[in-house]
Structure formats: C-alpha cells, structure tokens
Design a protein around this nucleic acid. Structure first.
Length: 235
DNA sequence: GCGACAG
DNA sequence: ATCTTGTCGC
C-alpha cells in the first residue's frame, strides 16, 4: 500500500488526544466502494514481557476468502496501553505492515473499534484516515462508550450499540451461545456495509476469517522472530 | 472522587 | 495483550 506515513508520534496522553481529535475531524462514513474484491485485515501480538509488538496484515479475496498475501513487521512498544488510545500503541507497527503489502485492498478490517469509541475515533477510524482507505472495526469487547440491549443467543442476532443517543456500532452474535462481537464503521463505510461485510466474512469462528488469519499470522511471526533471536543470542 | 476501559 | 494447567462443553 502507498500512503504518507505519520512523522510525529505522541509521547504523552495529552499529545495523543490532540492528534486523535484532528483525525476524528477527518472521518467520513460515506461508502467509498460497493462490493470489495480484496480485503485486508490487521492484528497484533505482544512479545514476551510485552515490550515488543508484532503486526501482520493479511490480504484475502472476497467473497471466496482465500489468503493471497501477508506482510509482517515488529518494533518496540512506544506507548502504554490506555483504553481509548490503542492506535498510538499498535498503530505504528500496523501501518508498517500495511505499507508493505503489494496488493491494494478495497477495505481493511481492524481488530479494534471504529467510531464506537469515547471520542468517535477508534484505531480502525484512525488507520482509515491515514491510509484514506475504507475500514471496519471489529472486536470482542466494548469500551465504556456504548451500550446495547441483550442480544438473542442465536447466530445472526444483533442489537445496535448506542452512545450519546446515536448508533455507533452493533453487537452481533457470530456463533450460537458465544458472546457477541462488536462491529463499527471506521472510515468511508456505513453501518450497514460494515455489518454486511463482517457477516459475509464469517467462517464458523467468532471473529471474521480475515481477522482470524491476521491473528494467527501475527503469532506465527512472533514465535519465528523470538526463536531466531534466542538461537542468535546463544552464540 | 471513583469506576470502567479495544489490545 | 501476556503468563499459565487443567478442564468443561460442543
């Protein structure tokens, strides 16, 4: 992928909130495309001790969902985990993984929130703004910025997630009797399109297949690097 | 002031 | 997220 990489990364929460606000003002939820042909998904894994973050970007075809490319990068963690500021912790390495992709995806699924976020700008939205590429946020928990009515236990059931009187996402039951997942538009994507694409990318697991592949890839990459570093260290 | 809080 | 063993259930 080709996009301009951010140069100034915040070192404090205060600086991060300012940057996040600037990104929030650039969010558009007008759909950019209709049916995607290529979908990218990104996820991370943390190294032993938690001082290194590994990120993988996987590209799959749609609607077949066959992996055609993956690219991984790792680097030192430079920002603490602060709920609501996940982008500043994982974003740097995720963007490097995306930048290394040869194929140009039509939309990106991010393991995190889109607009279902205290300031309306979760990691998925922030990544979309920087790449100028449609994004969808998909994860397993809600931040304290949304609530929903109970979701029926059958797969396919869902409830809107509301925050400050607005629908910011949906709680979706992707498997019978398994806790719902949370879907929210990130950037250049509507609520309906976000839901439709995630649903059509489910393959029997709680999370959509592209995200599951990215998760597995990040962990495989992590074990590969850590093993290599261990053997190199024993000389 | 306290609690809740993606990964 | 990570560390960590067994264990309950489909």
């Amino acid at each position: 992928m080709n996009f301009s990489f951010p140069h100034n990364w915040p070192r404090t929460k205060r600086e991060a909130y300012i940057i996040q606000k600037e990104a929030a003002d650039k969010i558009s939820l007008l759909p950019d495309i209709d049916t995607p042909k290529l979908i990218a998904a990104v996820d991370t894994a943390y190294g032993y001790g938690g001082e290194t973050v590994y990120a993988s970007a996987v590209v799959t075809t749609f609607p077949e969902i066959e992996e055609i490319e993956r690219f991984s990068r790792f680097g030192p963690v430079k920002f603490p985990y602060v709920p609501g500021l996940l982008f500043f912790r994982e974003g740097p390495v995720i963007l490097e993984a995306l930048a290394g992709l040869q194929h140009e995806p039509d939309i990106i699924i991010v393991h995190g929130h889109g607009i279902a976020h205290p300031h309306g700008c979760g990691m998925a939205s922030h990544i979309g703004v920087l790449c100028d590429k449609p994004t969808i946020g998909c994860c397993r928990k809600l931040l304290n910025s949304g609530y929903h009515r109970p979701v029926q236990t059958q797969k396919g059931s869902f409830q809107p997630v509301l925050f400050k009187g607005k629908e910011v996402g949906i709680a979706y039951r992707s498997k019978d009797n398994v806790k719902p997942i949370f879907i929210s538009p990130g950037y250049k994507c509507s609520m309906e399109q976000a839901r439709d694409i995630i649903i059509r990318n489910l393959r029997g697991y709680r999370l959509p297949e592209p995200l599951r592949l990215a998760h597995l890839s990040a962990n495989t990459f992590k074990r590969y690097i850590e093993k290599k570093q261990n053997s190199h260290h024993l000389r």
